[in-house]
Amino acid sequence: MENNEYPFVGEDDVFTPGRIAALWGLNPNTVRNWCRTGTLKSIRWGGKYVIRGTDFIGFMDRGRTR
């Protein structure tokens, strides 16, 4: 499935909280908190959070105002 709404995010991409923070101009701790609380679906890998592209797209879709 092609992602036209978020061309900088591929569904098969993997992101760190730092990369997401850089894309959106946020503090990396904010993104880590979203991961820790489950607001942003993530996987713990070697003690670090990893976010799949599909989960990041879903997070952005849920946050959109309609």
Results as ranks from 00 to 15, higher is better:
9 V>M: 09
40 L>Q: 05
31 V>D: 06
64 R>H: 08
33 N>E: 11
62 R>E: 13
18 G>E: 14
33 N>I: 08
43 I>W: 12
14 V>R: 11
39 T>N: 12
55 D>G: 06
1 M>V: 10
58 G>K: 14
62 R>G: 00
20 I>K: 00
51 I>W: 04
15 F>C: 05
15 F>T: 01
63 G>Y: 04
21 A>N: 07
44 R>V: 15
60 M>Q: 14
60 M>N: 13
2 E>V: 11
56 F>A: 12
38 G>E: 09
1 M>T: 13
9 V>R: 07
27 N>M: 02
36 R>I: 02
52 R>I: 02
1 M>H: 09
27 N>V: 01
35 C>H: 10
27 N>T: 00
57 I>R: 03
16 T>Y: 13
9 V>T: 07
35 C>D: 04
9 V>F: 08
51 I>P: 01
57 I>F: 04
36 R>K: 15
56 F>E: 10
52 R>T: 10
62 R>L: 13
51 I>V: 15
46 G>T: 02
62 R>N: 09
8 F>C: 10
17 P>A: 08
57 I>G: 07
26 L>M: 11
58 G>W: 04
7 P>T: 10
42 S>Y: 06
62 R>Y: 02
47 G>C: 07
46 G>N: 14
59 F>E: 00
25 G>V: 02
65 T>V: 11
40 L>I: 03
7 P>R: 09
30 T>D: 01
61 D>N: 12
45 W>C: 11
23 L>Q: 10
11 E>V: 14
19 R>I: 12
57 I>K: 05
38 G>Q: 09
14 V>Y: 07
57 I>H: 09
19 R>C: 05
4 N>G: 07
36 R>Q: 14
